[in-house]
Nucleic acid binder design. Structure first.
Lengths: 186, 186
DNA sequence: GCCAAAATGAAACGATCGTTCTATTTTCTC
DNA sequence: GAGAAAATAGAACGATCGTTTCATTTTGGC
């Protein structure tokens, strides 16, 4: 992977998330990337491919961010997902989920939508793995992962109305009640 | 309020929600509204004003849909919000929250963003009122409303990954556990 | 230091989009 | 039914945007 290509993908991720898919043109991306327009078109066939690369870049950094360095098990290992999300939001700002926004702006089937679907499935699998590692059985993990996922998605969406800290804190507390009501090895 | 104006606002709401703010131009709106282009510009100063009217139209129908015809109190009165959301999604499709998408596509301050903020505050107030009517005290209602709000927002967002029925059912079940864990008159 | 490959800056294209304008037709009111 | 107001169809405008091209400069490997 070329250095310039990475630059463009990272810059596109930043500016697309900050200003929205509608208002951002190719010229803004090359400005943010400190790169000539021709360079972008030597690395990408078109704008949509830049967007796909931006989503791939975001998926990568997101998974890095959500990864646990070391984990003692139990409920706290699951609840720490919300803390990671809070850190993630601190860097990236609170403008919702980039993948959902991309899917909304590209309603017809295509690589953008596929990237969004793949991201959500990876996310769900990550939650489920965390639950299993924390002590829940497979069937319980599958069910609980759906609810934790709803709470995490709700936290991100609610940032707009409630602010980052409140939205994530309330989601986390609800998750704690949920997990206490459905303890492992039940 | 003129008949044509209402037509345009309703059509804009439909097509904007279905296809996204980015891909929809004024010509698509007038096609969907069965109205001439000049008529649109005789009723609205510009496209952004059409969008604001579309959001206002959606707010109106949304509040109608969420309103209870008659309500026995208790937990079920609150949980019925999720059923209403399911009905709402059945008509409107599962492309996320139109207000959040509008806010994401119009990042700078302005009437679009204001409409989105106002909608979320109205929504929160509706939830809180429902909780009070169901028996919770004022302080508890305020706190619980935040969490129910997160769950409702999460349900809408999770539709993309989980499908309408699953997303809303899991959110509703989580809400039930939350409300059982924090009963009224605690 | 040389040479190929990559990057740059800038201009220019076709297409699309928001907006305006005009001439004609329909609708509504008295 | 006459006259005013609104709606229509369609053309045309300037601006923006995605994309292509080109001549020039910079970079990196032998």
């Amino acid at each position: 992977m070329s250095k310039k290509r990475q630059q463009i993908a990272a810059a596109a991720e930043r500016v697309l998330y900050r200003e929205g898919f509608a208002q951002v043109g190719v010229d803004r991306i090359v400005d943010e990337a400190d790169v000539a327009l021709g360079t972008l078109y030597k690395h990408f066939p078109g704008k949509e491919d830049v967007i796909v690369a931006a989503l791939a870049h975001r998926e990568e950094t997101f998974l890095e961010r959500m990864e646990e360095p070391e984990g003692e098990g139990g409920i706290d290992a699951v609840l720490r997902l919300f803390d990671r999300l809070l850190d993630w939001g601190d860097e990236k700002g609170g403008n919702g989920c980039l993948f959902l926004r991309a899917a909304a702006d590209y309603p017809e089937p295509g690589p953008v939508r596929e990237a969004a679907v793949a991201h959500k499935q990876t996310y769900l699998a990550l939650i489920e793995r965390r639950l299993r590692h924390a002590g829940w059985e497979k069937a319980e993990s599958k069910r609980l992962a759906l609810r934790i996922f709803v709470l995490l998605e709700g936290a991100v969406s609610a940032v707009f109305a409630l602010g980052r800290e409140t939205a994530i804190a309330e989601a986390k507390e609800t998750a704690r009640l949920l997990l206490l009501a459905c303890p492992p090895r039940g």
